[in-house]
Design a protein around this nucleic acid. Structure first.
Lengths: 124, 124
DNA sequence: CAGCATCCCTTCCGATACTG
DNA sequence: CAGTATCGGAAGGGATGCTG
């Protein structure tokens, strides 16, 4: 498992920030959560098309421990768990949004095809 | 070596953008280049305090191949190589700046110490 | 000065099977 | 439904030594 943010002393603020949102799935996860407000585990699994249960759980736990998302468990049968952004997590949305705009522009310029859809949103 | 951007079909724009600036050193490298305009190999090695020559070269090559930085070789003895951001690379500066501001604010709030200095700039 | 080459280890990640 | 457990491979990264 990845080293926790708190356990590695950052070199500087850029280093620190990049480690909090780095990794293969964190960006998309935050972005999808922003777009849907609340998502259940299974919905996330379908949104992040190429993710395995293991990586989804792992990434969710890291983001939760890091204070960027909130996890709400409903003790029902069948079980139900909802995820949403925390206030701190929401602060990152403008950044991801701009980065996504830039990415879209680049992909159009270079004629790069993508697997999902243009605005990264999956409607289930 | 890391897979090239062009060789992996992105899921969506967020995925694509994150892969272009992901990695342990890319963010800081771009940020330092922005702050100094032009930096030589040795200057970069001193700026990125914890980097090894191998990783510095590797990261520089990836960014160059990806069109975010420009590499200028002066055929002198001793040799001299300068690096600077390309136009596309400069487009990323506002994002990194935003992310850095957020990181600084978070570190202050959580009282997280850092190894380098506050604004991530090393004066050699 | 600005690197390349080699070895090796750790971390990340995927595949598959199973559970309260 | 929302996960866990285990295995194994691939990628990322460090240490050291050498070179045009």
């Amino acid at each position: 498992m990845q080293a926790k943010i708190q356990d590695v002393q950052p070199i500087c603020a850029v280093d620190y920030a990049f480690r909090r949102i780095g990794g293969k799935y964190k960006g998309r996860l935050l972005w999808y959560l922003h777009n849907h407000q609340v998502l259940r585990y299974g919905e996330l699994r379908r949104s992040i098309v190429d993710i395995t249960p293991k990586m989804l759980t792992q990434t969710l736990r890291e983001l939760e421990e890091d204070g960027l998302i909130h996890r709400e468990v409903y003790h029902e049968v069948p079980p139900k768990v909802e995820y949403r952004l925390t206030t701190v997590g929401q602060e990152l949305v403008p950044f991801i949004e701009h980065l996504r705009d830039w990415g879209m522009q680049q992909m159009r310029k270079e004629n790069i095809p993508m697997i999902g859809d243009t605005n990264c949103i999956t409607n289930d």
